[in-house]
């Protein structure tokens, strides 16, 4: 019985702190960033996540880029004021990762985009949300299922490093 309990506890521990974190979780961010307001203003995902189909990481905008637009925009809101503090100080904004892959994995964003995966597959309707919510828990099983379905390599070192 105790054996069973410890195994269960072990697996529980693993899933709770699993690397993707909980689905539906929304970590506190340094600035309350609304994806929706940006998307509604016809800003393409690629404008800020400029490397999404060209590099291993999709990229987040540098503070200067945020500043470049917001300089010419109303700055009343608390979030914008906070942003401008970072812009003035020329400091990076310490955004908290939504999709945190374990450090022993390799995930090239570009090849997934180029393979024709839609953004929604992983990111759901983030463009329509006011707070960024983690849509998908990044579990190996989930990756493998898709890789198998799409007949992409499931060789361990393709993703593990």
């Amino acid at each position: 019985m105790r054996f069973a309990i410890s195994i269960v506890l072990g697996i529980l521990a693993l899933s709770v702190s699993g690397c993707g974190g909980n689905a539906g979780a929304s970590p506190a961010q340094p600035i309350a960033f609304p994806h929706k307001l940006h998307a509604d203003n016809q800003i393409d995902c690629a404008f800020c996540h400029e490397f999404y189909d060209r590099h291993a990481a999709a990229g987040i905008p540098r503070t200067e880029l945020c500043g470049a637009c917001h300089m010419a925009m109303p700055q009343e809101s608390e979030a914008t004021q906070k942003l401008m503090e970072y812009v003035d100080a020329e400091e990076p904004i310490p955004w908290v990762r939504l999709y945190k892959l374990p450090q022993f994995t390799y995930f090239p964003h570009k090849w997934h985009v180029r393979a024709g995966l839609s953004c929604e597959t992983c990111h759901a309707d983030i463009g329509q949300s006011m707070t960024a919510v983690r849509h998908q828990v990044l579990k190996m099983k989930w990756c493998i299922e898709c890789h198998e379905q799409e007949q992409v390599s499931v060789d361990c070192v393709v993703c593990h490093k």
Partner: peptide
């Protein structure tokens, strides 16, 4: 540890 299709002996740490 296993042999990859490219002939590497890989170690999968986790």
């Amino acid at each position: 540890t296993y042999e990859t299709p490219q002939g590497l002996n890989a170690q999968i740490h986790p």
